[in-house]
Amino acid sequence: MSSQQTSSDSAPAGGTIRIAAIQTVSGPDVGENLATAGRLIGEAAAAGARLVALPEYFPLISGDERDKVRFRETDGEGPIQSFLADAARRHGVWLVGGTLPLVAGVDDKVRNTTLVFDDQGRRVARYDKIHLFGFQRGSERYDEAATIEPGREVVRFASPAGSTGLSVCYDLRFPELFRAFGEVNLIILPSAFTYTTGRAHWEVLLRARAIENLCYVMAPAQGGRHPSGRVTWGHTMIVDPWGEILACQDEGPGVVLADLDPVRLASVRESLPALRHRRL
Rank of each mutant, 00 (worst) to 15 (best):
K68E: 04
G252M: 13
I148P: 00
H277S: 09
I188V: 15
S8D: 08
P160N: 06
T232F: 05
F133C: 12
L102P: 02
V52I: 15
T99W: 03
A44I: 06
A85M: 09
A11F: 04
L34E: 04
G121Y: 01
R173Y: 10
P273Y: 06
A145L: 05
S8R: 10
L40V: 09
L186H: 00
D29F: 05
R199P: 03
V154P: 06
H131A: 05
G97V: 11
D64G: 08
D250H: 09
H201R: 12
L246E: 09
E183F: 01
T164E: 13
I148W: 01
V231H: 04
A180H: 05
E270K: 14
Q81S: 04
F178G: 08
V268N: 13
A210F: 06
S8E: 11
G162P: 14
I22N: 14
T194W: 01
W242M: 03
M237P: 02
V217M: 10
G224V: 06
V96K: 04
Q222I: 13
L115A: 02
N185Q: 14
D86E: 03
T147M: 15
Y216G: 11
I148N: 05
W94A: 04
A13G: 10
A125H: 01
P55C: 01
A146C: 12
E153W: 05
E32R: 15
P241G: 13
V30L: 09
A47T: 04
V110M: 08
A35R: 14
I238E: 02
P12S: 13
D128C: 09
T147V: 15
A46W: 07
P253E: 02
T197S: 10
A247T: 03
S159C: 11
A210I: 12
G97K: 12
L172P: 02
L280I: 12
R152V: 09
F83L: 13
P79A: 04
R279K: 15
D29N: 14
D108G: 04
P101C: 12
V110D: 00
A210R: 13
V168C: 05
R173M: 12
P28A: 14
P59E: 01
V52N: 07
M237N: 06
G121Q: 01
T114V: 10
E149L: 14
S7I: 00
G98F: 02
P150E: 01
D9C: 09
I61N: 08
M1F: 11
S167A: 15
A13K: 13
V116H: 04
G92S: 07
V69M: 08
V69T: 08
V268W: 14
A266L: 12
L189M: 15
D240W: 05
G182I: 10
P190E: 08
R50F: 00
R122I: 08
G134Y: 09
R122T: 03
A258G: 00
R72H: 01
A11E: 10
E32P: 09
M218Q: 00
G151Y: 08
D119K: 05
I61T: 11
A87S: 05
I130R: 10
Q249D: 10
R122S: 04
A274G: 09
V255S: 02
F133L: 15
R276N: 07
Q81T: 02
E43P: 03
G48T: 00
Q120L: 13
W233C: 07
A37G: 03
A47W: 02
L60Y: 01
L206M: 12
R209T: 05
T164S: 14
V124C: 13
Y170M: 09
W233P: 01
Q249T: 11
R72K: 07
G182L: 12
